[in-house]
């Protein structure tokens, strides 16, 4: 899937560029994006290392365990097949909480660790487990409570009421997450019985 998507994007882009005479732009775009990705990676290394460093302290002090306990009923409902004390639960809880607070950069390392732990429970290492599907769909449904970035952009462009979108956005998020949960629970039933 990922292999085809990537290939299709590039092939179609180049084909279209050669038909419309924008190949110069395409060349420039490809090189600039490659460079931009590394620049982004450098920033990511610093920010992610800062967060995982802090989280290691929190983990050693038992903070994450306390948060995970708070999330336990939700996780039990969404992931009934993950053993109660498994590390995957902790990482999923951290990922969901970070996403709720709009700390996307904090959510990704926890999410990647969650996938690593879910992979340990997975029987076929090349095929996504039901838990992985549920985790990603819930993640993509966006459980964000407040989009602080968006409010900042709105202020920057002179909005009279930058925060007016919080309520509507929250409702839209809740609707999409509920549909995501129903879909995952339905697929869970279909795939396990």
């Amino acid at each position: 899937m990922i292999n085809y998507l990537w290939a299709i994007l590039i092939v179609l882009g180049v084909l279209y560029g050669s038909l419309t005479g924008t190949l110069g732009e395409v060349t420039l775009g490809a090189i600039e994006e490659a460079k931009a990705a590394v620049a982004l990676g450098v920033t990511l290394i610093g920010v992610v290392a800062m967060w995982t460093g802090l989280m290691k302290i929190a983990e050693r002090a038992g903070v994450i365990q306390a948060l995970t306990r708070y999330m336990a009923p939700v996780l039990k409902f969404l992931f009934p097949n993950i053993p109660e004390r498994h590390l995957a639960r902790k990482h999923i809880a951290t990922n969901i909480i970070a996403n709720m607070l709009g700390l996307g950069w904090a959510a990704t390392p926890a999410g990647l660790n969650a996938m690593k732990e879910l992979q340990k429970l997975n029987k076929d290492k090349e095929v996504a487990s039901i838990e992985m599907c549920t985790f990603l769909i819930i993640n993509i449904s966006s459980v964000q409570l407040i989009s602080i970035n968006m409010i900042a952009y709105r202020i920057q462009f002179g909005s009279d009421n930058p925060t007016e979108i919080i309520g509507p956005a929250l409702i839209a998020t809740i609707v999409s997450t509920i549909v995501g949960v129903i879909f995952c629970k339905f697929m869970m039933k279909v795939k396990t019985h």
Binding site: W6, L9, I10, L12, G13, V14, Y16, G17, T20, T22, L23, E25, V26, L28, G29, A30, E32, E33, A34, A36, A37, V38, L40, G41, L44, I45, V48, A49, M50, W51, T52, G53, L54, M55, K56, I57, E59, P109, L112, N113
Partner: peptide, 30 residues
Amino acid sequence: GAKEGIKIVVDILPTLIGLMIAVGIVSRSG
């Protein structure tokens, strides 16, 4: 913890580069 974080980013960096190139091509070609 920071060491673990650096390893995570280094592992995903090639993916990031590949994806951003593809998006750049689709967008710049029009």
